[in-house]
Design a protein around this nucleic acid. Structure first.
Lengths: 143, 143
DNA sequence: CTTGATGCAAATGGTTTGCATGTTT
DNA sequence: AAACATGCAAACCATTTGCATCAAG
């Protein structure tokens, strides 16, 4: 994984036609900062507000939306709980324990078979970022 | 797919220790009736209330919960929109278009590779019912 | 200066819950 | 009778939206 460079990301954002604002800078920085974690919008809001309490949570949501449309950020939706976000560079999928909430990361190619099958049989172009699997993790699988 | 028999389902439910009530009978009937569709809790509520307007939506939710725990019903959670339910007999997974909401069904074995990999590498037991893939369907993939 | 971005507060929508009452076993 | 299920209304929580203001280009 290439080390994510904040300035480069901001540049890409500008190129997409979006304006570069303080809020967006901070959200992006928080995302870079989060590294391998899976922050929710609220988590990011907290981090951002640590630097600038002015930034409202709804702005974080709107910003994440823009970033997603610009292709910089990926949203992983988990059933029931809150969605999590990470930089698009960070290609992986998720398996999440229905019982304890632990998440496992899957290499990007794990779904290759599913994806090609979807395209071949149904013309369906799977978004390689939005995959989520439910189930039970090692620790919870026994009971 | 074996034709789902309402009475058999009710029997299984009773065997699980749950009581058989009018509401549950109706919800199950609605589910059987829905066949290959993917009704939401609200859809089911409507169908049920067509027979018996007394039944409250919250009861439908609670009933679906019981049915899920009893293993009779499977809930497929879609990001953003409402969850859909179907009988557990009806083994398949979903791909759903992020743009138009169209759903595609995937044979149960499509995820075999992913599932075995999860178990082998992470000890993660994937629930073969709860898989959902996002992306764009044939019609929406172009724009 | 023009358009897009933000703060705020209030709405939304799916789902859950507390409690008193009714029903199944 | 005892345990469980239901109706109802109200709570919940993540997310979205209307609108007036503000800042980036």
């Amino acid at each position: 994984m290439a080390a994510p460079d904040l300035d480069a990301l901001l540049h890409r954002l500008r190129d997409e036609g979006s304006r570069v604002t303080t809020a967006r800078r901070l959200v992006l920085a928080a995302l870079v900062d989060a590294g391998g974690e899976h922050p929710t919008a609220e988590d990011l809001g907290q981090r951002v507000q640590a630097s600038n309490p002015e930034v409202h949570l709804s702005t974080v949501y709107r910003t994440l939306d823009s970033l997603e449309h610009a292709g910089l950020v990926v949203r992983a939706g988990f059933r029931g709980s809150a969605a999590t976000y990470h930089l698009a560079d960070d290609h992986h999928h998720h398996a999440r324990c229905d019982r304890c909430g632990a998440t496992v990361e899957l290499a990007a190619d794990a779904f290759a078979a599913v994806i090609s099958r979807l395209r071949r049989d149904h013309g369906f172009v799977a978004a390689p970022h939005h995959l989520t699997v439910g189930g039970h993790c090692r620790d919870c699988a026994d009971s």
